Simulated scan of single mutants.
Amino acid sequence: MASQSNSEDSRDSPATQLNELIKSGWQGLKQSRPGGNFKGKIALAVLMLIGVAGWSAYYTVPSDSVAVVQRFGKYLGEVPPGLHFKLPLGIDVVTIVPVKRQLKQEFGFATLGATDLHQSPRPQDRTRETQMVTGDLNAALVEWVVQYRISDPFNFLFEVREPGATLRAVAESVMREVVGDRTVDEVITIGRQEIETESLTKMQRLASKYAMGISIDQVQLKNINPPQPVQESFNEVNQAQQEKEKLINEARRDYNKVIPLAQGEKDQRIREADGYRLKRINEAEGDVARFNALLAEYNKAPEVTLRRIYLETMQAVMPGIRAKIIVDEKAGGVLPLLNLDAQTGERP
């Protein structure tokens, strides 16, 4: 049903009707005799001319585009989207420019089904475009995409003869320059974002300098690989680097685990030592102050102070003695009175 409706639409289209009209007119001219009605031939030719003029007098501009109109090759202006009319029979020439559509160019690879002739490289140029020399004199295969828009239709059509091919040459030149300023490790691993940013800036600067009427939106790197003969060796180097990074990370993990613990123990011992130091200093200062106070009182009354100190000392010492033996100073001897056998089992 869909194919049938499409065929009916194609039969009802103005182009099909015009072709049928022209075909029937030519058949009428061929079938007429040389001596036939001359006015009929003129009328038929005029009718055909009117049909061709009417068919070529209108055009439609898509919603994402504008139309650039030229009259006898002279630029007239831009026409917005919609249905418009122009002078027929090639007097006005209309060129549709997709100003709101994001276009792209691919380097080193091709997307199937692309309609833009400049979007994908020619098959013989794909390998050549990707081969680049880095700053450390190594080789790399770089594939990338440039996404852009047409910002100025006049410059895009008339300032540069082939803007698509020119943009392709500019993009390749800039990418080779940027890649040539970096090492192969930077190009393949950590330097991708810097390469994209720097390439975008330089491409836009050249596009503005050449008045190409193009605004570059994005430069995106796709696949970056070393050449095939050194692919295996390069993979081994990458594996060794990854193993090195793994060991470094494990060592840092152990370091972060042990060092803070040791730091904490060190700080704890330092604080304990400071506390013990302050304790000893305070105790010593307290003993000194106590001794000085006793010395001042002793100087005031030596006998009284001496007796008080003696009594206080005895009061502190005597409770700790289990057995107490008091001997009179006037006693002549202690052996007859002291039961040594009974006291041998006791400890003072």
Score class of each variant (00 low, 15 high):
V133L: 08
L157T: 06
G28T: 13
R122G: 00
S10F: 06
T166Q: 08
K266I: 08
G25M: 04
Q315M: 02
S5H: 09
E250F: 12
V97L: 13
G113E: 00
R322E: 04
I214A: 00
F154C: 01
V178H: 03
V170H: 06
P62R: 04
F234S: 04
T115K: 15
S24M: 10
T95H: 07
A53F: 03
L221M: 01
A207R: 01
I22E: 09
T130S: 06
A240E: 12
L44K: 00
G164R: 02
I248V: 14
Y148K: 13
L29S: 08
R308G: 09
R271P: 01
F72Y: 06
S120Y: 05
I50S: 12
R290P: 10
A53V: 05
G108C: 10
G51K: 06
S120E: 05
R252F: 11
E236M: 05
N292Y: 06
A211E: 02
E177L: 14
Y276Q: 14
I309R: 09
V258C: 00
T189P: 00
K104D: 13
L167C: 12
E162Y: 08
N19H: 02
N155K: 12
Q193A: 15
T313F: 14
Q102R: 13
P226Q: 11
E196M: 08
G164N: 12
L278I: 08
Q193G: 11
A251N: 09
P302C: 10
G73T: 07
N19V: 14
D267N: 14
T183K: 11
D181W: 05
F38V: 10
R271H: 05
E143M: 07
D287A: 13
N223Y: 05
N292T: 14
D9N: 13
T344F: 03
D136M: 02
E106F: 02
E129S: 01
H84Q: 05
V258F: 01
K209A: 15
Q27W: 07
I224M: 06
K266D: 07
